[in-house]
Simulated assay, not measured.
Amino acid sequence: MRMNSLQMKRKLEQRLENPEWNSSFNRDKDIFRVEWKETRQGVSITIPNVIAKYDQHGEAALDDLEYHVKEALKIMNETHDLSGAEKKILPVIRATSFPRKTKAGKQLVYTDHTAETRIYYALDLGNTYKLIDIEMLTNENWTIDRIKEVATFNVRSLMTNLKKDTVAENDYYFLASKDGYDASRILNEAFLEEMKANSKGELAIAVPHQDVLIFADIQNETGYDILAQMTMKFFAEGRIPITSLPFLYEDKKLEPIFILAKNRPTRKDK
């Protein structure tokens, strides 16, 4: 029998019990929230989504959720400095629909990327990271340009090991190191130029979610359809989805494209 919302709420209460936290349940919206008593900063959890993952993966899904919620709450209650931690500043790719402010109302640091994606900046904390906000910059007299420069430099040092798969005479390359910055490698221009130089056909790139980067060396019409299906599947399964639209990479530019079945792609107007 499928677990209902109240049963899942009780499970979450047991796993996320802490004398310094408050928990609440919005029955109308099916949202369970855990927050610090003192600051009211916290994490909201959509119960139906948790139940869906629990149906698929059982207690392992709750283990993963518990870990990430506790890490998020821990980070919210810490003070982090940028100075002296320059090597730990990295870019992260998000959808343009991603919030520009934290739930506490702090303006996040970001720069535009494509019509589908935006670049945010993170301070790596080992097992997780904290998105950098304007207040952090102001406190240390940093500029957005400095953050961008440091993060862009650091992303070039990340490994770029790829796995290759050939389908219907088209070559697909996957980068999935699970370090939280797989999609961020799309900002390593030297890496993209190397892939372009070695491609036999048109080079397409996809970032369906945070933890994967896909290159496609498209050599026939079927290659586009395969890429579209592949990207949509990854997008649906990702913990932090970004975009189901791939990009064509030409002249050092990324152009979002719609891929129509049995047809060449059409560029999406910005």
Rank of each mutant, 00 (worst) to 15 (best):
R2D: 14
L6P: 08
R10Q: 10
N18R: 08
P19K: 06
E20V: 15
E20G: 14
N22H: 12
S23H: 13
F25L: 08
N26A: 10
N26D: 13
D30Y: 15
F32Q: 05
V34L: 09
I47N: 01
P48C: 09
D55Q: 11
H57C: 12
G58P: 04
A61Q: 06
L62M: 10
D64K: 10
E66H: 09
A72G: 12
T79Q: 15
H80R: 14
G84K: 03
R94N: 02
T96Y: 04
F98S: 06
P99C: 07
G105K: 02
L108R: 04
L108A: 03
L108W: 03
L108S: 03
V109R: 00
H113G: 04
H113F: 07
D124N: 01
L125S: 02
N127G: 08
Y129H: 03
L131D: 01
D133S: 06
I134C: 11
L137I: 05
W142H: 04
T143W: 09
K148W: 10
E149M: 07
V150I: 06
N154A: 07
K163W: 13
D165W: 14
V167F: 09
A168S: 13
D171I: 11
S177L: 09
R185I: 06
R185Q: 09
L187A: 03
L187W: 03
L187C: 04
F191E: 03
E193T: 15
E194A: 14
M195P: 07
A197H: 11
S199D: 10
K200H: 15
A206R: 00
P208E: 02
D211A: 02
D211G: 02
L213K: 01
Q219L: 11
Q219A: 10
Y224A: 04
Q229H: 13
F234E: 02
A236V: 12
A236T: 12
G238P: 01
I240F: 00
I242Y: 00
F247Y: 02
Y249D: 04
Y249K: 01
D251I: 08
L260V: 12
A261V: 09
R264W: 11
R264G: 14
